[in-house]
């Protein structure tokens, strides 16, 4: 599988490190979050069938984190964009 790094272009999958679901926001008020809230923030992730925004690290290349929208069935990658950017609308 080729993954399109936003800075280096398409590279082989083995150059990358997977980082899980993207756009998981840190709690606005951490001191107000209870144990169940922290557990949900730390461990509970979507497991969707279809387009999924996830984090990748180009470990062997530019060593930058970025987000990619990948289809969890076909492995097709529709978009790769820098962290901080909003998720593109796919499909």
């Amino acid at each position: 599988m080729l993954i399109p790094c936003p800075w280096c272009g398409e590279r082989e999958e083995t150059e990358f490190h997977y980082g899980g679901q993207a756009h998981v926001a840190y709690p606005d008020d951490p001191s107000a979050v209870d144990d169940a809230g922290w557990a949900a923030y730390l461990f509970v992730r979507d497991n969707s069938k279809g387009w999924f925004a996830e984090r990748w690290l180009h470990r062997a290349g530019c060593q930058r984190w970025f987000n990619a929208v990948r289809h969890t069935v076909t492995y097709e990658i529709a978009a790769a964009y820098p962290p901080g950017a909003t998720r593109p609308v796919i499909g």
Binding site: C8, R11, E12, T14, E15, A60, G61, C62
Partner: peptide, 10 residues
Amino acid sequence: SARTMLAKAQ
């Protein structure tokens, strides 16, 4: 140029 893997070496 490219920063990449060559024979499993970075």
